[in-house]
Nucleic acid binder design. Structure first.
Lengths: 360, 360
DNA sequence: ACGCTTTATGCAATCGTTTGCATAAATGGC
DNA sequence: GCCATTTATGCAAACGATTGCATAAAGCGT
């Protein structure tokens, strides 16, 4: 059907081997035939068959990225970054969605290795350590965002302790002394690490830790809502909430809306990980950015490094990508009595009493 | 490195061919050897090499999905659906991101075909019709969401005329007679079709079309914001806005927030295509659902159909997936003077004066 | 027990590349 | 101009499966 190397060779009246060598640039070929062959190949529209090549070379030009889902904004940008980087290097990305499910992950992993992928970037569930360890012998693997403690795989992590610290410190610097924390389950690394960063910032500021202000839960909006209620129902509710559980943000926002709590006037809100709409929300939501882009890029770097020259132990097992604070409009200073500085009137509904004159 | 068919054959003291036949179930093999072989293969941990198989059979067990990006919520769910469906059939999904760019799309297409993908679902940019047409000879292709007019490819489309009609009619039924429309560029099919649905609903209701109420623009939040401003600055602004340009929603919401316009009290808002946070937003945003799930599923169905028995012309060239209205809280009836029915007091900021008692 | 049909196996070619080894051509030193 | 090198080419064997064809083994009727 399509043009094969044999066709090119015939057209050029040379053997298939010379054709191969000329076109791949491998080994000994005269300058002249090389150019001639390239020309002919182009004229004939020859495109090498990666499958045949793969059979021989054991490579597939396929790199897989295994993430939990695509609803998570971080995974989206990671997927986009990885895809873009790989494409530039003439690799194809196999995007797999594991749904944070051990079985699914396991199945996917075997299929991927069957397909002789050249490399794998995986957000591990942490439940297939043994398998990952075995596979790592056959194919370069880099873990992303989560560590699988059962393995000693190279891992690219967000700096959650630092991120949480940064965020909490920011709120403290704004004068908040009662900072609520809504954080992920404590059986996940990120959950634990973010809590630790929060605690450290508190300690540094000489603020006593108040467990009533700390709520951990699953990565779903419902959790955010229920935690927010608990926090707001406290006899002395927090003046700021740090939502360090990404998916929970929606729930928190709903509760504040329901209760007519103005942000940042009545409550400062700081979230973790960016979402496209955070910037467009009113007020624009301040966040701690976990650096999804950087994470993905670094993961690709590391993977390529390993793939390139089969580099084994480089020594480094773990990379941390710095988090950074992005200040927008959802946190305010509170040494003043409240609703003094940025006091939007919040008048009763009327069509055009704009607080800021429209300008974007 | 890994167990090959030869190994299995040797272990079983049969030839490679019998091993092959026994394991694939093709052709003539005695019940007994078949079982024996399967057992031995399992014991040895044999996994067929898709590359080698592909070389012979011309198949790769790879199906590609080419979309514009992953930030679009519809594409996300489509990707998830396609991946899930394919995985169940033991195919791997190659997810490619074309960025709505003609060159990128073209490059990706060639690489994909090089890789001998078994099928392709593509959201075409519409600028590579010729190429698509050629490729379609080699591999089954189904277009998704957009049509490429230069081809006669089987295409699965959302029913945009109907969706827009449904949405507009809903608003009209609620008593709105001035319905603003923010719609996509008129050089896209969806842009044109949504406008037509809107117009039809208006006409049916005997409402004169007012072009001042219709704004078309690019698929970005900025467009939404500027269009919203134009609409709201009208001497007689609309009482409802239908944002039929998916990405524009964010911009519209920002403007209403800036201007302190209460939804749905001051303005009804209806959007197109769902976003995960629409449900959680206060008020929850009513939408016209384009049926991304159904679209993806149908596309997979059609693709599998074609792949299965190399079915060529089935006659049908175009499938339309019905849109449906999902009523939430962002649209209200307006025969009453306004702010009579669901009147949240919108009091000046205070911590716990909830309009509704917290309950989710 | 003999031929005839059916069924099960093996042989070897094939898919489109790459690559080690042998050979042919070119180069260069004298 | 001849021999030793270097350089360019071709042959053929891989890679790991599938598959047409030939053959061996079995089943069966008489």
């Amino acid at each position: 059907m399509s043009v094969t190397l044999k066709d090119v060779a015939q057209a050029a009246r040379v053997s298939v081997s010379t054709a191969s060598r000329a076109l791949t640039g491998t080994g000994l070929t005269s300058e002249r035939t090389q150019q001639r062959l390239t020309r002919i190949a182009r004229e004939l529209g020859y495109r090498p068959n990666p499958i045949a090549r793969g059979l021989k070379t054991g490579q597939s030009r396929l790199v897989a990225l295994l993430v939990h889902n695509l609803t998570n904004a971080s995974f989206q940008v990671m997927a986009e970054v990885v895809q873009a980087r790989l494409k530039a290097l003439n690799y194809q990305m196999l995007l797999c969605i594991g749904g944070d499910d051990a079985q699914a992950e396991s199945d996917t992993l075997t299929t991927l290795v069957d397909h002789r992928i050249d490399g794998l970037i995986v957000v591990p569930t942490g439940k297939n350590g043994a398998q990952l360890k075995t596979l790592a012998k056959d194919v370069p693997i880099v873990c992303l965002v989560r560590r699988d403690d059962a393995t000693d795989l190279e891992t690219v992590l967000a700096d959650d302790p630092q991120g949480a610290y940064l965020g909490t410190r920011h709120l403290i610097e704004l004068g908040h002394r009662r900072v609520g924390l809504i954080v992920g389950r404590q059986d996940t690394t990120s959950g634990r690490e973010r809590l630790s960063g929060y605690v450290r910032a508190l300690r540094e500021a000489g603020i006593a830790r108040d467990d009533a202000l700390i709520h951990a839960g699953h990565y779903v909006p419902e959790t955010g809502a229920s935690c927010a209620r608990k926090l707001l129902d406290l006899p002395r509710p927090p003046t700021a909430i740090f939502v360090a559980n990404h998916e929970a943000t929606l729930g928190v926002l709903r509760v504040t809306a329901e209760r007519n709590i103005a942000i940042p006037d009545d409550l400062s809100l700081l979230c973790y990980e960016d979402m496209p709409w955070f910037e467009w929300h009113r007020p624009a939501i301040s966040i701690v950015d976990n650096g999804a882009r950087d994470l993905a890029n670094l993961a690709v770097d590391r993977l390529l490094h390993r793939m390139d020259k089969d580099n084994g132990n480089d020594g480094v097992r773990e990379y941390r990508v710095g988090a950074r604070l992005i200040k927008r409009d959802s946190c305010r200073r509170i040494d003043a009595p409240a609703s003094a500085k940025s006091g939007k009137p919040k008048s009763s509904p009327s069509k055009s009493s704009a607080a800021k004159s429209a300008k974007v």
